[in-house]
Write a protein that binds this DNA or RNA. Structure first.
Lengths: 162, 162, 162, 162
DNA sequence: TTTT
DNA sequence: TTTT
């Protein structure tokens, strides 16, 4: 690995849904997560304004499995990763672009509190390991047309660029 | 300003084109820039692979003016900002999404070298200040369908959330 | 403000003690905090090793007050800031150096759980506003000789370099 | 490797001296570098003020060798790493502390310009590989009492915590 | 579209 | 000690 440039994203936020984990034919896991960050400020009328930004996260391999086991809707996490924009075709055959954060570092935040996704694994989905097709319709998709899940087009084990 | 969460992007790369600067009705500047970051690695055949990622940057106000004066195609810069995904309609009336980095900090890098965009202002575009309508067709648009330029939907002077 | 360079620190950790807040003659607050980050790994005997790093944080003005009101020993926080090394004299008149993180952004993390320092202000110290001298002997100081608290040597209101 | 917390430093600056590289008994390289970041601002008299911060960097193994070959006094670099404070004894037997940035990512910046430390290796020091004892008296030491060079106290090859 |  |  070498690089000409820096491409780094740092986010702290809460998950909007449970992570979606599935397995590649070679057994590696891929997780998709939706993370909210929000900011609020006062406009000049003194009214508090709020804006929430939703981020698509992708995790691979062991990190994806950890996400599936320990994170849930509402979990607060810190992530580091890089920006990646993928091209895909919608149902009309139109080219579309989707920007994701490919996560390489993740920290669970918060205490042992309820819903904080910390400490104890959540019950695993018994169907997940078979779930190699059939992307589940997440709630997210009602908001933004769904790109297919991220599928690295290189040999998953050896060619990962990170 | 307050916030529940962290939304931070850090990039070092080179501009693919000159910045596009235009002015809002209230006189504030907005700049759009396209920044490349690339990474290379060896696949398992020992072949060097390279991938370039293109990032859309948006700058406002004084920072946009500095970009227009000092940066050019090829300039190497460091930027810090936040991710923002905007919704827009393409010509078929379809909803589309575009993810941009709203820059709040910029550093020009590199020495006195040619094209490094350092030190001396580049010749300003005499038409720029009148260019309040008519988004120029940038070369960028040949690759990815063009979202309209970023237009903050809040009062530009007072309501900026950053 | 301008700058030639980037000097940025990002930390997520827990406070080792309650923040120490005092007030400058001009009424501005200064807070000192001690933040732990830790990492663990397996050595080649398969033994888990752990290392904790302690960071000295300094906050000014409104941020210092917020720290004093909402943070406590054990609070988990995210901070962004810059490195600054100060020179001071120990009791033998020797020059010493202390490296601190001057914080400009802080986020409280974790839920409403006990000790998470979130949501409700902790009881304020009624003596704090008078506490312009007499730095309390924190537990920290038993570990590392105490530098004097950070005192900006510029006009506090106008000359802040950030 | 796991971790409870985040400990991240991001710097862009120029080297004050050539890197000092030496080799451990096991053949691994260690490099010490001194990096300047500076910021300037206007005080309330309208006078431009400038402050330079000096950072001690430590690199290990291949990264240390790259630094020794490609970087020189004046080189502009981007680095990512973590804060680490080491305890050492000065000549009076007093405990002292030195805070360093242990670098894990480095990018050379700037173009083909002179002194930019880019592209061509600088002439290597033929004595360096024998230089396992006898820390050279760098110019650095005139300003701040010299801690011994960083020596990881774990097995260098296997136990690195990063 | 950049850069090495 | 760097750099602009």
């Amino acid at each position: 690995m070498a690089s000409r440039g820096v491409n780094k994203v740092i986010l702290v936020g809460n998950l909007g849904t449970d992570p979606e984990v599935r397995y590649m034919p070679n057994g590696n896991a891929v997780a998709n997560l939706s993370l909210a960050t929000s900011e609020s400020w006062k406009d000049q009328q003194g009214q508090v304004q709020e804006r929430t930004e939703w981020h698509r996260l992708v995790m691979y391999k062991r990190l994806a499995e950890v996400a599936g086991e320990y994170l849930a809707k509402g979990s607060q996490i810190y992530v580091e990763g890089k920006l990646q924009t993928r091209k895909w075709q919608d149902q009309q055959g139109q080219e579309r672009y989707s920007t994701e954060i490919v996560v390489d570092t993740m920290q669970m935040l918060g205490g042992k509190g309820e819903g904080s996704g910390n400490g104890t694994p959540r019950p695993s989905n018994p169907d997940a390991r078979q779930q190699q097709t059939g992307v589940p319709q997440s709630r997210l998709n009602q908001r933004q047309p769904a790109p297919p899940m991220a599928e690295p087009d290189f040999d998953f084990d050896e060619d990962l660029p990170f």
